[in-house]
Design a binder for these strands. Sequence first.
DNA 1: GATTGTTAGTTACAAAATCAACCATTACAG
DNA 2: CTGTAATGGTTGATTTTGTAACTAACAATC
Lengths: 145, 145
Amino acid sequence: MDQKDGFDLQIFLPYLLNQAAEESSIAFQEVYKSRYGMLRTEWRVLFHLGIYGEMTATEIGSRARMHKTKISRAVQKLEDRRLLKRVRDAKDRRAERLSLTDAGRVVYADLREVAAQYDARLTDRFSSDDVARLRDMLLILSTPR
Amino acid sequence: MDQKDGFDLQIFLPYLLNQAAEESSIAFQEVYKSRYGMLRTEWRVLFHLGIYGEMTATEIGSRARMHKTKISRAVQKLEDRRLLKRVRDAKDRRAERLSLTDAGRVVYADLREVAAQYDARLTDRFSSDDVARLRDMLLILSTPR
DNA sequence: GATTGTTAGTTACAAAATCAACCATTACAG
DNA sequence: CTGTAATGGTTGATTTTGTAACTAACAATC
């Protein structure tokens, strides 16, 4: 099984990024899944509300680049579990302002702590300069041009 | 929508990696999807065979860290399209040795060229030192520890 | 050489993501 | 105003993925 070809999958950036993203998500996923039965879309919505406070589904969608149907279903589930509440916007009655309930904030605080420690553990094998540069580059790569 | 919280999703590595992976895959996905009607698993299998020559499904799976059912289905589709052929292994008749057909090699050569150019376009905004360091770090992050 | 355990790969069923169509409301053009 | 387009969000149908259970072949033990 030697390499027979000049091309190397292991340096193809989209592939590498995908592998790194998947591997580095596993242990965190394990936590939000087993501890709260959440899906990826769900913790993302939760975090957006935890971090930014009140937002609409569309705002979350454009910030997280998630499709609106994903968000709609995640919001529904979080609401069912009483982690999130919706209030119809008075000025634009199509929109609803989403925010966390007290219970939601507790869950968020817990997961936020897990995330912070997990992130620290992921990055502690690199110098802080390297990590900073890595984050910069990833942010640039995440931005559509 | 100011930040109300000390934590920032935009520096959480698994999130960042995911965003970068997704964004940086879009345009390439567009090509293999529209040009050959392929799925991500399918081009991955195709590339593995294109790069490494003959392999078994299990070998591809462990190298790409893809579940065997995904591979089984991708192999099936590639075979249906006559891009891949299977030969039962004589020494171990459970296994099958997979390889590309001539048609498969043509498709691979085309996509490989697209990938190389695409990768160049993704990385041309960074210094080559930075890109090298980025690849190193991503490879480390992709490896289970 | 039977028994038990493992490995390669497939298949059936459940969970989730995608896509298109949809309703309600708002924005905008004439 | 009125008709048409655009926006916020939901729903249903289809596709894709994930999980478990399965068959067939091999390996190891007794």
